[in-house]
Simulated scan of single mutants.
Amino acid sequence: MTGIVTVEVGLGDRAYDILIGPGLIARGAELIQKRLPKARAAIVTDENVAAAHLEALVESLAGAGNPPAVIKLPAGEKTKSFDSLETVVDQIIAARLERGDAVIALGGGVIGDLTGFAAGIVRRGMNFVQVPTSLLAQVDSSVGGKTGINSPRGKNLIGVFHQPKLVLADTAALDTLPLREFRAGYAEVAKYGLIDRPDFFAWLENNWQEVFSGGPARIEAIAQSCRAKADVVARDEFETGDRALLNLGHTFGHALEAATAYDGARLVHGEGVAIGMALAHRFSARLNLASPDDAARVEAHLRDVGLPWRMADIPGSLPDADALFNYITQDKKVSRGALTFILTRGIGQSFIAKDVPASEVVSFLKENHPG
């Protein structure tokens, strides 16, 4: 397919393709039916994405003789809830879709995570297709099969691993994203460089403006990110080892999201990750694992692209350091009470640090707390 980059996620008989390029939503029926012939479909989306992209996907499927059921939800992180899950599950069943039919997630990370969870539990597992419309979803949440919803006690604590059959990353869909949302997704792009691809991070430092403006650099950045994630997922599908590296910045970030009650006006996921990555590098320097110069370089790049990089950048007040620490201990990265962080020895040299002393974390949070 001209102008389309294909990245394979190598999982044996469950391998699937990520297709990256413009115009894929309008070709949805053709691309989905090639992999799931004769499958009927339900599309799950939110009100914001529906206004921009639903019609093109519905027309594509209906034009191929497969008019879909449409399940529309409110936009925002609070949609990742039991109430929304019940709505989606009930409407999939009401549409009389069978196990071999397809549930399509059209939207950002919230819709993808929720829809994948529903597809994973209805009829004990239905076919699932990701059509991510945000940069964050295209490079991160749509790839790798982690699905779920939030608990009031923490983010993504309820869910299943359920791999999609196909991911359609339509890069033209990103043209409708608000700048703040694009920036938030870019945090996950930078993350792949900071984990183990220092050359990619250096490329981003030099080319981020072209990634933001669109064109070949944007496709290249998304493809590199998807390759990085696909490599890790193929090695460690169920996050028992290396895959935890993908959580760089997330332990701090998830705690900050929980501390702001998932209020997207104050902090969206990618912004939490950006602050979390800066904190992870600064914490690594504090523990004498890495140079403070690396932390400063990460902070400078996040600042250049317009992302928040410190807790003081979050509007409003935050709970104190002890309360933030309690949110950290609720995170999934805690194992038998031992604190696991993704720390770094330098740019592109992240590693899994187990048994991080709680006292070090609390004092670091106190030092970096805006209060």
Rank of each mutant, 00 (worst) to 15 (best):
T79E: 06
F161T: 10
L31M: 04
S134C: 00
S317C: 01
G249I: 01
L339N: 05
F200G: 15
P315L: 01
A258E: 04
A321G: 07
L307C: 11
D242P: 09
R124T: 08
A64Y: 08
I158S: 04
L57H: 06
V361S: 11
L365R: 08
G249H: 01
A296Y: 04
D331E: 07
G120S: 11
A296V: 02
S225P: 09
H281F: 15
G108T: 03
A300Q: 07
D263W: 00
D294M: 00
S60P: 03
A184F: 06
V362I: 15
I342T: 07
P319H: 08
Q130W: 14
I328A: 12
K34M: 07
W208I: 08
R310Y: 11
E47L: 13
M1Q: 02
W309S: 15
N207V: 00
R336W: 04
V362T: 04
R218M: 11
A26M: 10
A62Q: 09
L365C: 11
Y16V: 13
N206K: 15
R153M: 15
Q224F: 14
L36A: 14
D46Y: 12
L179S: 06
T6H: 05
G125P: 06
A221L: 04
K229D: 05
N206G: 15
R180D: 05
A217K: 11
P68C: 12
A290Q: 02
L365K: 05
L61T: 02
G12H: 05
D294S: 10
I195V: 14
V160K: 01
P216I: 01
E8V: 14
P178R: 13
F283M: 15
L204M: 15
A172G: 10
K165A: 13
G276C: 08
N48C: 05
A94W: 03
G116F: 05
R180I: 07
Q224K: 14
